[in-house]
Amino acid sequence: MKKKIIAMVAAVMLCSAGSAFAAASEGSKLLCTAAFLKLAGEGYEIDYADADDLTTSQVKRYSGNREADVTYAAVGVAVEDETKIRVKVFDENEKLIEEDTDVRMAVASHTPKWTGKFAYTVDVYKNTDFCFGILTK
């Protein structure tokens, strides 16, 4: 019974996460959804999701105001096989406060001590489609 409920919740989360990546191709959508589901298991939920492509000479920046005492995970997922992706978090003074680089998925978490502006950048080590999400706990 418990397993059935977990499977149902996972299925609903899968549809929900898939919907968040509406703009992505089917393959990318599945991959991004699976990566985000992994974090959902750790108590995170999707607050924002985007899908796009990047070359190695580009960086994509996301900025916005964030609430104090809420834990955020900025997640980048590279769709191309064996591709390193890097996510950085900056405060309003452009000071780097968190960074993660990894193959396929990078996660940079932060819990702001004050409410204010933060920015995230994503760049890749190989041209690839990618998705980016801001998850909260």
Partner: peptide, 28 residues
């Protein structure tokens, strides 16, 4: 050099906080 060279900013996306996050923060 490829990893650390200055990169061209593709686009800046402004992500306004959702009401869920705003309410969560205010609730605290």
């Amino acid at each position: 050099i490829g990893a650390d060279a200055p990169k061209q900013e593709k686009k800046t996306v402004v992500v306004p906080p959702s009401s869920r996050v705003l309410v969560k923060g205010a609730t605290k």
